[in-house]
Design a binder for these strands. Structure first.
Lengths: 110, 110
DNA sequence: CATCTTTATCGTAATATTGCAATATACCGA
DNA sequence: TCGGTATATTGCAATATTACGATAAAGATG
């Protein structure tokens, strides 16, 4: 027990939930918003932006990278992180599908 | 330690991450997809659709409700669950903002 | 080469999540 | 009122996540 029964769900369901899970932490939302703000995927000052220790930030970055939400280029000494459209696009289309459904809902209930 | 330091992040960041976190589990994605499919927010057969025990499904439904992703109406004996546009809309606009940014990115890096 | 800077990893403690059986609650029909 | 059905809650065990100090790894700089 205690383990998520991923194998009982479809690949697509696991994929979507994995991306959503990665966004499911305020620090990681903050990282995403910062990367949006600076646009030009500036490097290492992400650590200074967040109220967390360097090791913790590094871990969060790793999870975002695993989920395909950001990607990082080694740039000499520092590393240059930026948003990766791959995962973002997947979740975006998931939400658009829901929103579409909601818009033209028969409104019969609830 | 071990606790998420929510108080160090903005209200909006916590809000977005809470909704994303709720979607961050394959069973809950499956519930959302099922509610989309049946459209007319049919009641209790959600339990039969999922490969999980009734208690577990009930818990997942509770979390989705807490996050504002679904809402439930008591309908006599059964309960009628359906998608709630409130939380969905919030995350949707978050993603559209990102996608917009990605589209007109200067492409200078990464 | 020695050292600084930047990022990653390890080890560990605290806390949260997941899943289920058992049980409780609430409404329905006979 | 008494089962029968549908959903929620409780209690617990297994596992995952979060956070951080310490330390490692790797390029930059003197």
């Amino acid at each position: 027990m205690g383990t998520t029964k991923s194998e009982k769900f479809s690949k697509s369901q696991n994929e979507i939930s994995a991306i959503a899970k990665a966004i499911g932490h305020p620090a990681r939302v903050a990282i995403i918003e910062y990367l949006m703000k600076v646009d030009a995927c500036i490097c290492g000052d992400i650590v200074d932006e967040l109220p967390l220790a360097q090791a913790t930030v590094s871990q969060h970055l790793k999870e975002l990278k695993n989920a395909g939400i950001i990607k990082g280029n080694i740039e000499g000494n520092a590393i240059c992180y930026c948003l990766d459209e791959k995962a973002i696009g997947k979740l975006n289309s998931f939400f658009q599908k829901i929103t579409l459904k909601l818009d033209k809902r028969s409104g019969s209930c609830c």
